[in-house]
Design a protein around this nucleic acid. Structure first.
Lengths: 192, 192
DNA sequence: CTGGACATGTAAACGGTTACATGATTAT
DNA sequence: ATAATCATGTAACCGTTTACATGTCCAG
């Protein structure tokens, strides 16, 4: 159960409305904890009922109108509690690895194209992270908070680096076995 | 929707009962797609009703008795279809990174201990994978299926390598800021 | 005053998790 | 006989996903 704590963190960084939170999740927090707007609205409701956050007094309450939330002392305490408490890492789930394993049984059709697609996506994501690092983390930033945020970003960078390297190597490794690709190409040419 | 395909792959590798599948998920497939026995029984029921697998004719049907399944042609076709079709990678979800980000707002209490715990777990997992590589992938294995399975294992090894390195570096990086650890130690000594 | 973007919300379906129930098999 | 273990299954709950509904605000 981490979504409420992701929201509390985001709200402590800056009081926001539901949609604003959704956008911020798409940009930064969502890089390692994604959420849709429905999840966020539902959770905001729960957090408010639990007395951990409240709508800023000035905001209206009717549907369709902006409602900005801020964290109450109880919410900060709950986030502290959760942050300090250890949690076991959840087992990973990666459909691409599963597909590779299935391909060992039913054949590699389509695998090459998908590996290349993933490689591109991870390269783009990596470039994006490196840009953020250049922009937001100039050398000489020493505060603990900066070091923590930088460590998180570095995890993203290292992870994407791992994926791009592994995908490139795997493509090379299987290059001889993925004959379907040139076949696709020839077919595409013939049809166009 | 990958669980049914994980099960089809496992059953093609070897016809099995529900519990046997559960154990095999704990050992190998579960390294990148975990599942509990309840998920597996429910999914076996669905797959059987859909005509993609069937219980081996010899097996009994009463409760509490072993029931071994095999994949039918339709099941193999469905797995082929799913394997060939591309899928977007799901956004990652990592609670540890979320906690680090929360720690930047509410303080680093407890973070050091948890980082060390994760480091140990990932080191163990890495050693386990390297042992499997030594045992199951001697040099000179050339069949496509071996190369595919080896690529999957290598992804696991590289991922755990990434985590151990990142955790070690992050601990070093924050060593000055995680004063709570020595405090914990002193407290522990005083109380014992 | 209308259409489009913004903003919040409801509902249903699905998958994963946890707790528990029940039957069969085996060793003592 | 009985307890432990193996094996299958039911049920309730929770979080996530998807589709849709509704209201507000602003530009043309």
């Amino acid at each position: 159960m981490s979504l409420p704590h992701a929201i509390l963190t985001a709200l402590l960084e800056k009081p926001s409305s539901g949609l604003e939170l959704t956008r911020r999740f798409d940009l930064s927090i969502g890089y390692f904890w994604s959420a849709t707007h429905q999840q966020i609205y539902r959770e905001l409701g729960k957090l408010e009922r639990a007395g951990l956050i409240r709508a800023l007094p000035s905001e209206q309450t009717t549907r369709g109108q902006k409602k900005r939330y801020e964290v109450l002392p109880g919410g900060r305490a709950e986030l502290s509690r959760w942050t300090a408490e250890g949690q076991d890492p959840k087992p990973m789930r990666d459909a691409l690895l599963l597909r590779l394993r299935a391909a060992a049984v039913v054949g590699t059709d389509g695998i090459g194209a998908d590996l290349r697609r993933h490689l591109e996506l991870h390269r783009d994501r990596l470039a994006e992270y490196e840009e953020i690092e250049r922009r937001d983390f100039p050398p000489g930033l020493d505060a603990v908070e900066d070091r923590l945020r930088h460590a998180v970003l570095r995890a993203g960078i290292d992870l994407e680096t791992f994926w791009t390297r592994w995908l490139a190597r795997t493509l090379e490794d299987l290059s001889g076995d993925l004959a379907e690709d040139t076949a696709d190409l020839a077919e595409g040419r013939a049809e166009s």
